[in-house]
Amino acid sequence: MNHSHHPHNHSGKSEVKTTVTYKDGKISITLEDNTGKVPELALAHEKEMHFIMVSNNLEQYYHLHPKKEQEGLYTIQQPLKDGTYKAFVDITPKDKAYQVAPNTVQVGTSETGKAVLDHDYDWTKEVDGKTVILEDVKAEAGKAVPLDFNMHGETPEAHLGALGHVVIVDEAAEHYIHVHPDSEDTTSFHALFPKQGMYKIWAEFQFGDKVHTYSFIIEVSK
């Protein structure tokens, strides 16, 4: 079972428009459907909105949960350094087709160049004393690719209704993938990559009330 938030629309057509702005340390997201109304959102993993923001070079990563300030407007305080960012508004509108697409957000005047991702040969990552290994991946475009994380015998705590969350963005920061474990008691995932190329993976696991984020770079073949 693939717990992707947006499996229902692969046409690329979206009936919901998202607009992301940033001012004085505050991110604002407005939503409007194709009739000019505010779309109704379904809960997905305990939240109406998962908001992913990455710097254009994929070096900075934020997974945020903005609060509804009023109908169609969500906000969150998050100071950002000057630079260029891509924001992905991960929502599940009821009765509306939706495809997550990047919103470019410029903070200040200094622009951030695009990422140039190199092969990641080290699949063992440690964050704050917790080690996670991504088992060898053979990734092909258009196929469900298994992503199996070895937790060294530790079981992460449930975080937003799952033992882990995996976010993947391609080198150009155009394609966004968000998947959840194959079952409630595993740290194995499946991801569908739309095309060949280099991708960055951020795997989130919670230990001791703190979310640890592990990043990996993989190459997807044809």
Rank of each mutant, 00 (worst) to 15 (best):
L58P: 02
K26D: 08
Y74C: 03
T35W: 08
E59K: 15
T21W: 10
H45C: 01
M49T: 10
P79R: 04
Q70P: 07
E40H: 14
Y61K: 11
K37M: 10
I52S: 06
E48R: 11
S11G: 07
P39R: 00
T35G: 07
I76P: 08
V16P: 01
V20N: 01
F51D: 00
S14R: 04
T75H: 07
S11N: 06
K81Y: 06
A42F: 06
N57Y: 02
K47F: 06
I27D: 02
Q78G: 03
S28K: 15
V38W: 00
T75P: 01
N57S: 12
K17M: 08
S28L: 07
Y62I: 05
V38H: 01
K23V: 10
K13T: 10
G12D: 07
K26T: 15
Q78H: 05
K68E: 14
A44Q: 09
V54N: 01
T35L: 11
V38A: 03
H65M: 09
S55Y: 02
A44K: 06
E48H: 12
E15S: 09
N57R: 04
L31E: 01
F51T: 00
L73D: 09
T35F: 08
Y22C: 03
G36D: 10
N56I: 00
E40K: 15
K67C: 05
H63N: 09
E46T: 15
Q77S: 11
Y61I: 04
V20E: 00
T21S: 15
N34V: 07
G12S: 08
Y22G: 02
T75G: 03
D33P: 05
K13Q: 07
K47P: 04
M53A: 03
D33R: 04
S11K: 04
E69I: 12
I27L: 15
K37N: 13
S14K: 04
M49A: 03
Y62P: 02
L73M: 13
P66M: 05
N34C: 08
I52F: 08
T30W: 11
H63R: 07
Q78S: 10
H50C: 11
E48Q: 10
M53I: 15
E46I: 09
K81N: 14
Q77K: 10
T18E: 07
G72Q: 10
P79M: 03
Q70R: 14
N57Q: 06
E71K: 15
V38Q: 01
E48W: 05
K67T: 13
K81P: 02
H50E: 09
T18M: 00
Y62D: 10
L73K: 15
E48M: 08
E59A: 14
S11D: 09
N57G: 03
Y74V: 00
Q78L: 05
S14G: 06
D33E: 05
E15D: 13
L73A: 11
E69A: 13
I27F: 13
H50R: 08
L41Y: 08
Q78K: 15
P39E: 04
L58C: 07
D33S: 06
K23L: 12
F51S: 01
N56Q: 11
P79D: 13
E69V: 13
L31T: 01
Y61C: 04
S14M: 03
S11W: 06
G36L: 09
G25D: 07
I76G: 11
K47T: 04
T30A: 12
L58E: 05
V20L: 05
A42R: 14
E59P: 06
T21H: 12
I27H: 05
Y74G: 00
M53E: 02
